[in-house]
Design a binder for these strands. Structure first.
Length: 229
DNA sequence: TACCAGGTCCTCG
DNA sequence: CGAGGACATGGT
């Protein structure tokens, strides 16, 4: 996958950034505003194409609603309308409100201080207590927003490594396999996961994967032309 | 036209 | 627990 190069994942509107730039090669530390935006993006992109989540993020930004106070106070109908392009908008609006209210109530010192002084494992556990934040969303927040070493497992990861015949199991089992095999460095986890996503989109697609052009073809259990058409 | 997208929660057997 | 369904818009 060397051809893919550095990915430096997670674009940001707020804070020091002003455009949805990918800012390749920047791994934090992030400002409080950036952390909040990344957390919101993590919720908006649940089972949704990133471009759709980005459209919703742009609407929030344009409305000046990219902060916990604004989201916590906003009328549900208005919040739903703003994030509509991301899909599942009623659910996600509720989740954004829960997250924002929790921040204000439980961490008035601010996201940045909270994330900075909390370990990856403790942060994950606390985030998981919130309704609407599951393992992948929590880990995305920990890794991308907090810059802490938690390996994110998503549909691409499970599919690619399952087909390769290298890793199977439930979320935490797959995660453990990666975290045991790699240095506990958030920059490495960031790049590795970004490469997995790129590979999943380009080759290891859910249906009709492009096995013929896949660089991992020879290593893969399910190649043999099985998925080629 | 169908199918899918970097999930999560709820219900049922 | 594990499978199955609901949630919803936008892109190919």
């Amino acid at each position: 996958m060397k051809r893919s190069g550095a990915q430096g994942w997670w674009p940001v509107y707020s804070g020091r950034g002003s455009c949805p730039e990918y800012r390749r090669g920047f791994y934090g530390p992030h400002t409080g505003e950036e952390i909040f935006e990344i957390c919101v993006g993590a919720i908006l992109t649940q089972n949704t194409a990133w471009t759709s989540a980005l459209a919703a993020l742009a609407c929030l930004n344009k409305a000046g609603a990219l902060g916990p106070g604004a989201i916590a106070l906003m009328r549900p109908a208005r919040l739903e309308r703003l994030i509509r392009p991301s899909g599942f908008y009623r659910r996600k609006a509720g989740r954004l409100k829960i997250f924002s209210r929790y921040l204000i109530k439980k961490h008035p010192e601010g996201l940045q201080k909270w994330f900075l002084r909390t370990s990856a494992g403790d942060l994950r556990s606390e985030l998981l207590t919130l309704e609407g934040i599951g393992p992948e969303t929590a880990d995305s927040m920990v890794l991308y927003a907090g810059g802490k070493p938690k390996f994110v497992i998503d549909a691409y990861t499970a599919r690619i490594f399952g087909r390769l015949g290298l890793v199977t199991g439930k979320y935490e089992e797959i995660q453990y396999a990666f975290e045991s095999a790699l240095p506990a460095d958030h920059r490495i986890y960031n790049e590795y996961h970004a490469l997995i996503v790129a590979h999943g989109k380009d080759f290891c697609r859910k249906t009709r994967p492009r096995c013929a052009g896949c660089p991992l073809n020879r290593l893969c259990k399910c190649t043999r032309g099985t998925y080629d058409n």
